[in-house]
Amino acid sequence: MDILDLFLHAGFWAATLRIACPLIFGTLGELICERAGVLNLGIEGIMTMGAMSGWIWVYKGGDLWTGLLFAAFVGALFGLIHSIFVVYLGLSQHVSGIGITMLASALSFFTFRMLLPSSTTPPKIVPFQPVSIPILSDLPFVGEVFFSQTPMTYLALAIVPLVIYILYRTPLGLAVRMAGENPMALEAQGINVLSIRTGAVMLGSALMAVGGAYLTMSAFDAFYFGMINGRGWICVALVIFASWRPGKALIGALLFAGIDAFQVRAQLSSSAKIPYQFFLMLPYVLSILAMVVMARRARYPKALLTPFRRGERT
């Protein structure tokens, strides 16, 4: 297949959008946490948990939307645990985050195995189906790419402007940003830093879980153990790439997904000269590259990683 053909092919762009969605949710979730001053390395585990819990909800007879809410709720719960550790107790954000990832992943696998003990072929659910938006979906090319997607994809695209609006145009968003820049300023203006940070981490974690759930409830129809496969870490890299800006996060996720979609197709078409593993490495290599490129320019939240302890002498 000619490269040019590939880019003119609507299927390619639609696939890009699908690959981007979990990254959009995850990156925005991480971004909200970090904007409030909290690094959340629980993301990989929380995405796994979201993928598992949303899926199992539906598998056990729940409907898709409540399943999604359930995934978000479970994600927020793990966000709360992380908050108690790093916001209230001021413990190492690195270690707590890794611990959360370990715990959430282990619990996901345990729960899945317990509820579905003997499964040789993974059971399936009926995931979100593509919904064509009338008229718009009939547009050539654009219609196929943007307007014949599943509701979760629309949700992902809608949530970006929403996050931008909240972060930059509302008093709450200002408080979140301030929590990541100078928590003492929040405290001095009578706002509870711990609540703001906890809220942000819970909301962010809920988004991460929804990102995980996208995989089991929209992109695929089953839960596999290695499903998240480093996507969470890629999101952490994308936040740096995006320089902590939600708009750039969307661009980053799309760019990334585009290269990934291209990689899959190139892999299929390459005449086995390049081993497939090297194609699979691409997302991880790109993530590192993305951080390298943006490292010098990034304007990180000044109070990132700094715990705030109320009423303590400094």
Binding site: F85, G99, M102, A106, F109
Partner: peptide, 9 residues
């Protein structure tokens, strides 16, 4: 794995 992760936290 759950025990190990929980003990880290």
């Amino acid at each position: 794995d759950v025990i190990v992760a929980a003990s880290v936290l």
